[in-house]
Design a protein around this nucleic acid. Structure first.
Length: 301
DNA sequence: GGAAGTCAAGTCTCG
DNA sequence: CGAGACTTGACTTCC
């Protein structure tokens, strides 16, 4: 088990997700922004490694507006050696990398321009991971998408869109249960149609659950990950104290997290903590899990 | 310099 | 059918 947090480190003075408005797009602006974002990403990688956090989700804003047609700057060529160096650094540290496109990246839309934009966005994400030189264990996690009033047809479109993807994108994709539409059972069904491994989000499962208990879900999830995919990925976030639906808690709920560790015990996975205070919760989680033998296992699934 | 408003994305609900 | 909600972090504008 490796533990991590998404995208930004709130304690560091830099951000790897600086961006700008479409109206401000220029080659100069893009160059200087990506330059700064990569610099910050490297700082985060080093900080995380020093603190034992070996699972990192890279922000989708690393290259702002990357998949917009207006953006014609060859950032991938321009920064190829910078990406390669950071990728070598993460490899040498034993760090795992993932990415998670936004909620507006939808492969199953009935609108072809939406699907084409999603495809371009996924190509961008895969390009980043390719430039880092990472193998297929570096995943891109997506959701099932919209329902469009006919979930069955929407799921069919999802499967068709997956089948049509470039293998360089396809091999990195994993599908995560959401809090509203595609439950854990639904994404397992998508796995059966597409072969995409399943990311289990414990928080979404609590909000949009089905018959699976936590250990049951983890056992089913485990079967969806192949030898090339690495350890399964699990997302965890604490429930909000006031019980408000959906959004992520501000800080780690220690009791809930310890219960989660206990109940998930038979299964090993890499754990992404989606909590608003980012690295603080990840450090607490690492501390709470320090006696857990899974932390010493970095092996294959 | 800080507060308020805007953006980027697409779906979905509500009137 | 069209306006607004939803989400998130950061930009941008305004005083």
């Amino acid at each position: 088990m490796r533990i991590g947090y998404p995208c930004i480190n709130l304690g560091l003075p830099c951000r790897p997700s600086r961006t700008f408005r479409l109206a401000s797009l220029s080659e100069e602006r893009l160059f200087s922004t990506v330059d700064g974002n990569l610099q910050c990403l490297e700082e985060i990688v080093r900080w995380n490694a020093r603190h034992g956090l070996l699972f990192l989700r890279i922000t989708s804003d690393l290259v702002p507006l990357a998949s917009r047609p207006e953006n014609t700057f060859p950032w991938d060529e321009e920064f190829a050696s910078r990406f390669a160096a950071i990728g070598q650094l993460t490899e040498s540290l034993g760090m795992r990398i993932s990415m998670h496109p936004g909620q507006y990246t939808l492969l199953n839309s009935p609108r072809s321009e939406v699907v084409e934009a999603a495809r371009a966005d996924l190509r961008y994400h895969a390009r980043v991971l390719d430039l880092l030189g990472l193998d297929a264990t570096a995943k891109i996690q997506i959701h099932g998408g919209g329902g469009y009033g006919d979930k069955k047809a929407a799921s069919e479109r999802f499967a068709g869109a997956i089948d049509a993807l470039d293998p360089a994108v396809r091999r990195r994709l994993v599908v995560e249960n959401d809090e509203r539409l595609y439950s854990f059972s639904d994404v397992v069904e998508l796995y059966r149609r597409t072969g995409l491994p399943v990311v289990f989000d414990a928080f979404h499962h609590a909000l949009n659950g089905d018959r699976h208990s936590l250990p049951e879900a983890l056992a089913v999830q485990y079967e969806t990950w192949g030898p090339e995919d690495g350890l399964p990925i699990v997302d965890y976030s604490s429930p909000l104290p006031d019980g408000r639906r959906g959004s992520h808690a501000h800080a780690l709920d220690k009791e809930d997290f310890l219960r989660f560790l206990e109940e998930s015990r038979p299964h090993d996975f890499d754990l992404m903590l989606e909590v608003k205070d980012k690295e603080q919760s990840a450090l607490q989680a690492l501390d709470l899990a320090r006696a857990d033998p899974r932390l010493r296992n970095r092996g294959r699934a």
